[in-house]
């Protein structure tokens, strides 16, 4: 198994671009908290700490080809799939040009049909069944070589819909990779209060699929495990449950105070193992990247986020007259009825 101590699993170009996305994601996250304190972003949900897991996942995904059914924590993932800091700031500020929802959903509900990133609700665990349906549709259409990835927290595994999704995927042996971003808390609730076994991966046995635990703060370990799981899915070898053990470095959201349920010393200990710093060291040590290059990447990310903030700030809000747009689509061949006109 590849890890920080194993053989290099990524090319230098892959490693450097993965690092760039991780840094960019953290810069966006930093900015969102700042905007929240300034009252310019109403809702922030963090991805800080999850970057190695999410960017590692993306290394096994063909963007725009494989389907991705993410959850609210997945900002670094959607960046790695090609969304931009500008897209994310438009989303966070609820602008009309927000590509995820046109200003309808609060931040964290990423979506782009063109990139095959599927829109989700806020209802925890409700989206895995959509991934299973997409995989089913791929099978029905005979579209081999395409897989579906869906992600969620360990708390979500307590939900009924989570169980139904894995049951159906297991029965039908569908090409889905289920990725648990196992960060030890569901808001305030520790792992043992949501999950009755030590590892979410152990649950896989009950659904007839392989389960694997990886170090979610080790980018290469995640990428390798994901590539194995995706290869199995693409080769019609069935689903996988992958548990990436990681840690959320900030409160759950801007409405949360994490001092109420976890010790500062615990958070500090995990900060010392920040996945971005850790992978930066790998770049220097194993890939011979000069520290100055890393500093340059960080500076570039900050500048990009500054520009994205200016752009989003200046972008128009949705017009109130558009509130009833996209409730229903247009029925082919149907004439508009007088009632529709009255309410138009």
């Amino acid at each position: 198994m590849g890890s920080d101590d194993g053989p290099p699993a990524l090319s230098a170009a892959e490693a450097l671009s993965a690092y760039t996305v991780m840094v960019q994601a953290r810069a966006v996250d930093d900015r969102l908290w700042q905007l929240s304190r300034q009252g310019r972003a109403h809702f922030v949900i963090t991805s800080a700490g999850h970057e190695a897991t999410q960017v590692g996942m993306a290394l096994a995904i063909r963007a725009g080809h494989d389907y991705v059914v993410p959850y609210y924590r997945d900002m670094a993932l959607v960046l790695a799939l090609g969304q931009t800091p500008r897209d994310l700031l438009l989303h966070a500020m609820g602008r009309a040009a927000d590509p995820a929802s046109g200003g309808r959903q609060m931040y964290g509900h990423f979506s782009s049909r063109a990139r095959r990133i599927v829109s989700g609700s806020s209802s925890v665990g409700s989206h895995l069944v959509h991934a299973v349906g997409l995989a089913f549709a791929l099978r029905i259409g005979g579209e081999r070589d395409t897989a579906v990835v869906t992600s969620f927290g360990e708390g979500a595994t307590a939900e009924g819909a989570w169980h139904e999704a894995l049951t159906i995927a297991g029965i039908q042996r569908l090409p889905v990779v289920f990725v648990c971003e196992s960060n030890q808390y569901a808001i305030s609730m520790p792992h043992h209060a949501e999950v009755p076994v030590a590892d979410v991966a152990l649950k896989a046995a009950g659904y007839g699929m392989p389960g694997e635990v990886v170090d979610g703060n080790d980018l290469r370990a995640v990428a390798l495990a994901m590539r194995r799981a995706m290869a199995r899915a693409r080769a019609d070898g069935g689903p996988t449950l992958l548990e990436c053990k990681t840690y959320r470095l900030r409160p759950h959201s801007n409405a949360d105070d994490d001092r109420r349920y976890r010790a500062a010393a615990e958070v500090d200990a995990w900060r010392a193992r920040d996945p971005i710093g850790r992978f930066g060291e790998v770049l220097v040590r194993e890939y011979g990247v000069a520290p100055a290059v890393l500093a340059q990447i960080a500076g570039q990310a900050r500048a990009e986020v500054d520009q994205a903030t200016l752009d989003a700030d200046a972008a128009p809000a949705p017009h109130p007259a558009t509130i009833a747009d996209h409730v229903f689509g247009t029925v082919a061949g149907a004439a508009p009825r007088s009632e529709d006109q009255r309410h138009a």
Partner: peptide, 10 residues
């Protein structure tokens, strides 16, 4: 229903 949603999305 969730699987039907996923199918419809494709």
């Amino acid at each position: 229903v969730g699987v039907a949603i996923g199918m419809a999305l494709h």
